[in-house]
């Protein structure tokens, strides 16, 4: 390989000819000199100037155990006391939460709703519109994975919130409690207690409570005795008339609305009876998680109002 040689740097003479750097390799290999376009060069200088200003304003250069904090400041409040910090995303968030337009408007609405009584909220169209749009968002984030997007739930797993049948109560207060503290729906399994005949009988009685004709009258009366007696003890939770007990989350068995088994979808009386019998034998244990630590009381109020409205009822 030849050592690179030198020539005079050449300026373009004729049009179409390009300036070279003057370096020559292998005798005739020359390097074009294409200067950067002006706009590019000046943009580059501008970014340099920009970074100088940036370093001045914002946290930038590390020095020993700390760093230059910059001269841009953010003002916010902690418990009413004004505070100042160098610019950073956490302080920025605090300021945004405290004085940002959207945050302030949202907080004002939430506060009004938290302080108003339930009937006022339900009859005020402005408040209701806010409740519905805000709650739809948080219902999607926190509840829909179980109760499904429209609140219809999944039979056997998560209760339907869009009807007016409530295990724990459908008033806004009761729903607030459900959300804040969570609920543990529990009915003991009767596998060890009942033999086949008894289980069939109780199932027949439960179906008769819900108005399903076609059960064997003998079974129904035997079932009734077990339901109301010491052996079954069902009345302790579901009540003498089978109307349920909200403090236990025990459902009303007379309204033919079923959360755990698809009785109304079954084709024959025998199929319905089998569904109820199996449920009694295996019992129920379902958990609704507590959201008191995750959502603020105002958010829970908004959610409870929204959920109450889905189906109404008490």
């Amino acid at each position: 390989m030849n050592e690179p040689g030198h020539e005079q740097q050449s300026a373009p003479g004729k049009p179409g000819e390009v300036e070279t750097t003057g370096h020559v390799w292998d005798g005739d290999l020359r390097e074009y000199n294409n200067p950067l376009p002006r706009w590019w060069l000046w943009s580059f200088y501008a970014t340099v100037v920009f970074s100088l200003i940036y370093w001045l304003l914002y946290p930038a250069w590390p020095i020993a155990g700390t760093y230059t904090k910059g001269v841009a400041w953010i003002n916010y409040e902690v418990e009413g006391e004004p505070q100042r910090s160098h610019w950073n995303s956490r302080a920025l968030l605090l300021r945004d939460m405290q004085t940002g337009d959207a945050a302030v408007r949202q907080r004002e609405f939430l506060q009004v709703i938290a302080e108003a009584d339930h009937d006022t909220v339900l009859s005020d169209t402005d408040m209701l519109a806010f409740v519905n749009s805000y709650a739809r968002g948080i219902f999607g984030d926190f509840c829909a994975a179980c109760h499904q997007t429209g609140g219809a739930g999944i039979i056997g797993l998560y209760p339907n919130l869009a009807d007016d049948n409530w295990h724990w109560g459908g008033t806004i207060q009761a729903i607030e409690q459900t959300i804040t503290r969570g609920r543990m729906g529990y009915m003991p399994p009767y596998r060890e207690t009942f033999d086949d005949q008894q289980a069939d009988a109780v199932a027949a009685y439960v179906l008769s409570l819900a108005g399903h004709e076609g059960g064997d009258p003998e079974q129904v009366s035997l079932g009734g005795a077990i339901f109301q007696g010491y052996e079954g003890g069902c009345y302790a939770c579901h009540g003498r008339e089978g109307l349920g007990l909200k403090s236990q989350g025990a459902p009303n068995l007379t309204n033919d609305i079923w959360q755990n088994i698809d009785v109304t979808g079954a084709q024959s009386h025998a199929e319905r009876q089998a569904l109820v019998r199996d449920l009694i034998l295996r019992g129920v244990q379902r958990e609704m998680p507590a959201f008191g630590d995750r959502l603020s009381p105002a958010e829970i109020r908004v959610l409870a109002t929204y959920v109450h409205q889905l189906g109404g009822g008490l």
């Binding site: 829909a144 994975a145 179980c146 797993l157 995750r294």
Partner: peptide
């Protein structure tokens, strides 16, 4: 953590569409 029940996580991990159809 704590947002859902253990039971939900088990169902969801086995078959997500069993609890979240979308």
């Amino acid at each position: 953590g704590g947002k859902y029940s253990n039971d939900w996580h088990v169902r969801h991990l086995i078959d997500p569409r069993a609890v979240v159809p979308e």
